[in-house]
Simulated scan of single mutants.
Amino acid sequence: MQQIWDEVGESDSDRDKMLLQLEQECLNVYKRKVDHAVKSRVFLLQTLADARVELSNLLSALGEKSYVGVPEKTSGSIKEQLAAIAPALEKLWNQKDERMKEFSDVQSQIQKICAEIAGVSGPEESPAVDESDLSLKKLDEFHDQLQDLQKEKSERLHKVLEFVSTVHDLCAVLGLDFFHTVTEVHPSLNDSAGVQSKSISNDTLARLSETVLSLKEDKKQRLKKVTK
């Protein structure tokens, strides 16, 4: 640089100005590099903190106290710590997705049977899953609830079929149209509907009971007339 200035004939004052300018430019570049490094460090630290929080939240939601593969001690650079946590996070996210599907499935079945018992059409949308509690304990509670409902559904269906059979026999004795009589109670009670498709609602059971009582009373009155 000195040789170039000598050849050009730059004055000492101009040379000093140029040197100061170069120093300032170098300093500015250095500051920008430092600022970038600081921001990068802050970003990585925040990412690491977020990853640890996410890890903790996932373990809590899944009801896990610990997880194999999660580093217990923090050591190494920030990037190394992130790299150590990443595989565990990936596995836990996948585990959460699978658990969500299990919850959604069992809750949908519960929702469907509850709707059948209530005699209403089930909602088209899947039930909301509480992502804060995806523990196996909670899942078992839903499975227990589903088993109870399935048992109740089976018992109700058995009662419905018994009532329908009784209605059939009484209609045969009284010379009444069984199909017309039973479908007046509920359209699903005709023979063409599958067993699992028959209504098991409180209203259907109550109306079947009333129908049986009415037919029995009709039969009783007819017998009285015959015996007179």
Rank of each mutant, 00 (worst) to 15 (best):
C114E: 14
A118V: 01
S121P: 01
G122K: 12
V129I: 05
V129F: 01
D130H: 12
S132G: 02
S132L: 07
S135T: 07
S135W: 07
S135Y: 07
K137H: 04
L139F: 10
L139H: 08
F142V: 01
F142T: 00
D144T: 15
L146R: 05
Q147P: 04
D148A: 11
Q150K: 08
K151M: 09
K151Q: 12
E152N: 09
S154E: 06
S154F: 04
R156V: 00
L157A: 07
H158L: 15
K159Q: 15
V160M: 04
L161R: 05
L161E: 11
E162N: 14
V164W: 00
S165G: 14
S165D: 11
S165P: 01
S165A: 12
V167Y: 00
V167P: 00
H168M: 06
D169Q: 15
L170E: 03
C171I: 05
V173K: 13
V173L: 12
G175L: 05
D177Q: 07
F178P: 02
H180T: 14
T181H: 04
E184I: 11
V185K: 00
H186T: 00
H186P: 00
S188M: 04
N190A: 13
S192Y: 10
S192C: 12
G194E: 08
Q196V: 10
S197L: 13
S199N: 05
I200Q: 02
I200C: 02
I200A: 01
N202P: 02
N202I: 06
D203H: 06
D203P: 01
T204Y: 00
S209M: 12
T211M: 14
T211D: 10
T211A: 13
T211V: 13
V212P: 04
V212I: 13
K216S: 09
E217A: 08
E217H: 10
